[in-house]
Simulated assay, not measured.
Amino acid sequence: MNFYSLVFLFFPIPGVFLLILGLGFLKGRGRAFCTGLGMAILVFLAFPVTSKLLVLPLLVHGQSLVEIIDSRPDVILVPTGGVRQVGDADYVPKEHTMARITHAKHLQDVLQIPMIVSGGDVKGIGTSESAIAVKAVQLEADKVILDQKAMNTAQNVDAFVEIMKQNGLSRPVVATDAVHTRRVAATLLAHGVSAALSPAWEDVATPITPQDFVPSRIGYRYANRVAIAYAAILKYLAQGHFQWGHLTAIK
Rank of each mutant, 00 (worst) to 15 (best):
52 K>D: 03
76 I>W: 00
182 R>I: 02
85 Q>A: 05
244 W>C: 02
18 L>K: 00
23 L>F: 10
197 L>S: 05
220 Y>R: 14
25 F>G: 05
47 F>I: 10
74 D>A: 05
117 V>E: 12
7 V>F: 13
224 N>H: 13
53 L>F: 09
9 L>G: 08
124 G>L: 03
233 I>M: 12
80 T>V: 05
83 V>T: 13
90 D>C: 09
129 E>W: 01
127 T>L: 10
150 A>W: 00
38 G>C: 01
25 F>S: 06
25 F>E: 05
54 L>K: 11
183 R>H: 13
217 R>K: 12
83 V>Q: 05
136 A>E: 11
79 P>R: 14
98 M>W: 09
61 H>F: 12
70 D>N: 13
157 V>G: 02
65 L>Y: 03
106 H>S: 15
183 R>V: 10
100 R>S: 12
96 H>W: 13
37 L>W: 02
156 N>F: 01
142 D>T: 02
119 G>S: 04
220 Y>L: 14
226 V>A: 05
104 A>K: 12
243 Q>E: 14
233 I>R: 14
219 G>E: 03
134 V>K: 07
189 L>I: 15
202 E>A: 07
2 N>H: 15
26 L>S: 08
171 R>H: 10
59 L>M: 08
197 L>T: 04
246 H>C: 02
153 T>C: 08
94 K>S: 08
175 A>N: 00
126 G>E: 10
151 M>L: 13
169 L>W: 11
200 A>R: 05
114 P>T: 04
71 S>G: 14
137 V>P: 14
211 Q>F: 09
68 I>Q: 06
240 G>A: 13
104 A>F: 07
12 P>N: 06
233 I>K: 12
79 P>V: 03
161 V>N: 03
84 R>M: 11
128 S>F: 01
73 P>M: 10
127 T>E: 11
182 R>C: 02
239 Q>L: 13
88 D>Y: 10
201 W>Y: 14
83 V>C: 02
144 V>I: 01
110 V>T: 06
164 M>P: 02
178 A>I: 08
22 G>I: 14
223 A>D: 07
245 G>W: 15
111 L>Y: 07
195 A>D: 00
227 A>I: 06
79 P>S: 10
249 A>V: 09
67 E>F: 11
106 H>K: 11
18 L>E: 15
205 A>G: 06
5 S>R: 15
82 G>M: 07
40 A>T: 10
89 A>F: 04
155 Q>N: 10
243 Q>R: 13
206 T>N: 03
69 I>N: 14
183 R>W: 11
250 I>D: 01
